[in-house]
């Protein structure tokens, strides 16, 4: 499986964010998108996720399921955590599992991100780091080969970052692909895609 972009360019609000961008990542590889603020890291992830339309170029996944589009085979972990405070932790996660067509056990996914003790509590009671871990549990509840992660380690403490590095390592060993916008090292072997400035 190979995720690749050719001559991708992005225009937002009449301003060219980046252009002529090439990137590729094979199965088992993580690509860290780095660069200063405003260099278009988030825009790139949203382009790959199909949430923005590219102004030029093409993005594709070779060797994936033929009948599915790239966004349908991807997980997007954005700044906003897609959690409903009125629902319990388990209700939040099982909704995203059912909506994504996953079959994993909710209890195991929550235990994997150390939220097993909070299963029945309203998501409103969670701290920022716990909310982030619940979002990460979503990546585990439904299997998708491509993970698009936007600042995934923000709000995570050192233990949480270690835990997440382990989760990402398992995903790569299973042949997954990770595209992560980040300012900090992720704790896994990555190749760098530098945006902005000299690009």
């Amino acid at each position: 499986m190979r995720l690749s972009g050719r001559h991708v360019s992005c225009i937002r609000g009449g301003r060219e964010v980046f252009s002529g961008l090439d990137f590729e990542a094979d199965s088992g590889q993580a690509l860290a998108v780095v660069g200063p603020n405003g260099s278009g890291k988030t825009s790139l992830l949203r382009l790959v996720a199909g949430l923005l339309a590219p102004a030029g170029g093409s993005i594709g996944l070779d060797g994936g399921a033929a009948e599915l589009t790239l966004p349908e085979q991807a997980h997007y972990l954005g700044h906003r955590d897609a959690l409903k405070p009125a629902l319990s932790v388990a209700e939040n996660l099982s909704f995203w599992r059912d909506f994504g067509g996953g079959i994993e056990d909710i209890g195991q996914c929550l235990a994997a991100v150390r939220l097993g003790h909070a299963t029945h509590l309203p998501a409103a009671y969670l701290s920022a780091g716990q909310r982030r871990r619940l979002s990460i549990a979503r990546l585990l509840a439904v299997r998708r080969p491509v993970w698009l992660l936007d600042e995934p380690t923000s709000a995570l403490d050192a233990a949480g970052q270690d835990l997440f590095a382990g989760v990402m390592r398992d995903h790569l060993e299973d042949g997954g692909i990770i595209l992560a916008a980040t300012h900090t090292p992720l704790g896994i072997a990555t190749r760098e895609l530098r945006m902005g400035g000299a690009a």
């Binding site: 235990a111 150390r114 097993g116 003790h117 909070a118 509590l121 309203p122 009671y125 969670l126 716990q130």
Partner: peptide, 10 residues
């Protein structure tokens, strides 16, 4: 109590 439980780390 629930909020205390939520902030407790596993």
């Amino acid at each position: 109590l629930q909020m205390m439980q939520a902030s407790r780390q596993a």
